[in-house]
Amino acid sequence: MLEARLPAASILKKIVESIKDLVSQANFDCSESGISFQAMDESNIALSSFLLRADGFDPYRCDRKLSLGIRFATLSKILKCAGNDDVVVIRYADDTDILSLVFEAPDNNRISEFDIKLLDISSEYLSIPEQEPECKVKMSSAEFSRICRDLITIGSSVVIDATKSGVKFSSTGDDGSGSILIKQSASVDGDGKAAPQTTVEMSEPVSLELSLKYLNNFTKAAPLSEYVVMNMTNDSPLMLQFDVSDIGYIRYFLAPQIKD
């Protein structure tokens, strides 16, 4: 059985919104340590994954490993019935094909309960090598979203060049070209509070060409986190990570475009 109580529905709503256009259905894997998910898009180009650690829920109970097959369109529709501040309780009783979602309004005067039919999905897992990237960039997720949105008006792919001084995003299309350079920065705003900053750590300069259609899809996770981390290694897939407050993360992997 599974019983997991999440303090704010908004977290789950944002996670589902940031995945549902990439993957139509997949298993939620539940264990003692939390709820995780990994699925590729149909064309084998992008992989989406998330982890919500057990300590992000209060309480969290899962006494054995479970794979719960979910259709994202259904989950998205049902989560629209939850208020952002509602508490969400996710419940699964062993040997059933139903997942229950209970939404409790903050004043406790409204409790809604929805049941979702689970699917039997046989999923294939990719093993992703744990290796230090040649370059790790941390930047404002809003800035990253803006760059992807701006450059898709020029071309279908972006070349990301990361060097010690900063990160350059360039795109070329039939009608012209454009580039945006984000310099490494550590700014402090008027109140002495650290403003979103860009940091670049690297062992090698990296250059990757990537599809802007996919990157724009990934930026749907930007409302979850002020920052995005890009792990890049030459001739390897890009890994983008958005933290989900301090309870987990969403990660996307995107295969690069390869020179013919």
Binding site: N44, I45, S127, Q257
Partner: peptide, 14 residues
């Protein structure tokens, strides 16, 4: 010109 790579050529499936 460049062509889109696929993830399964980078990661092994299990």
């Amino acid at each position: 010109t460049s062509k889109q790579g696929r993830l399964d050529s980078f990661f092994s499936s299990s």
